[in-house]
Design a protein around this nucleic acid. Structure first.
Lengths: 178, 178
DNA sequence: CGAGACATGTAAATAGTTACATGATTCA
DNA sequence: TGAATCATGTAACTATTTACATGTCTCG
């Protein structure tokens, strides 16, 4: 059986629901602390997409108020689980990276040493900040015996390390030349 | 002086025009061979954005037909050059990465060894294909004595190497466990 | 002469961000 | 009591992709 095309946001949400029912708010806060470093989502996408998924029969809402505080959690339906598995389990290539910092460094490199150095510093600082954030999450990642998230976290850390080291090295080169 | 907020597409275009007047078609083919690995642009963005930049006084169009083949090249105006320098030369953080392949690996890691392995293979293959593409460009990158583009190319190569090695290593780990 | 590169654009749809609005609960 | 967190959503805007339409030139 074929499933509807899933938007990236739909994939994030289905993936999150894969480990149990969640509210829109939950999804937002979990993505902010996990997938955010390679794919972010905002409320403006999450809530409407949850409704679309419910309409499409991939997720089922349940009203689940906490005291007087309203709350709607969504659970994967069987079809939703199938769609999630169909996505993760079959090849499909929407591989496209985006990184505005690299874009800036690219053009800054043409604009003279000082501008280049400045852009490198900014990029390095960004990657170091992300590293800090990712390292903080480590303790939360390998909870529940699931190894997956911590693998990907380790990947993220390696990537940002590579990037920040590259910036530092290049910076040294540029500064030596001055 | 402050300049209009530049969209990412505007930044790509201004950056490209920084090294001389170009047509929309030129910009598309150059980005496809250079910035594409961290920021792509389509005709549907490029042509309208060129018009907006012209209206805003940052770029100036010149009709430049080649035989009976029409062609409009755009050149940076003084204001356009200022805007480009203002962007590259001042800090500003829209650092946000996007990589749907990592997203898939992240959720695949929760879906069992075989699915995880499959996603890792796909991601690895993508990074290796990109590596091939990037290595092909090397000869074109350091033309004209400008070192910048080849620096960033080297960065891209390093990044994809890291990513594809990580996938290979993780894949071996997973396969050993099976 | 046909294929592929050169060249420009638009329309429609989809995707995503930002700012806003609202209200409850918890904890210091 | 006030701040932070929990909770949900919409409207307006901005960004981006995709598919389409059109025509020229060059090289084999």
């Amino acid at each position: 059986m074929r499933y509807m095309e899933l938007s990236a946001t739909a994939k994030v949400i289905l993936g999150m629901l894969g480990s149990g029912p969640k509210s829109g708010y939950d999804i937002k806060s979990i993505t902010d602390r996990s997938t955010r470093f390679f794919w972010a989502a905002s409320y403006g996408q999450i809530y409407p997409e949850l409704k679309r998924l419910a309409e499409a029969g991939l997720a089922e809402p349940t009203s689940d108020p906490q005291g007087g505080r309203q709350r709607t959690t969504y659970a994967l339906t069987a079809a939703g689980r199938d769609a999630l598995e169909a996505w993760t389990g079959s090849p499909g290539i929407h591989h496209e990276l985006r990184d505005e910092g690299s874009l800036k460094v690219f053009f800054a490199s043409l604009a003279g040493e000082e501008v280049f150095a400045q852009a490198l510093r900014e990029k390095r600082d960004f990657h170091q900040a992300e590293l800090g954030r990712l390292r903080e999450i480590i303790p939360f990642a390998d909870q529940a015996g699931r190894k997956g998230p911590s693998d990907v976290l380790e990947y993220g850390i390696g990537l940002h390390e590579f990037a920040s080291n590259w910036c530092s090295d290049k910076l040294k080169e540029v500064e030596r030349e001055t």
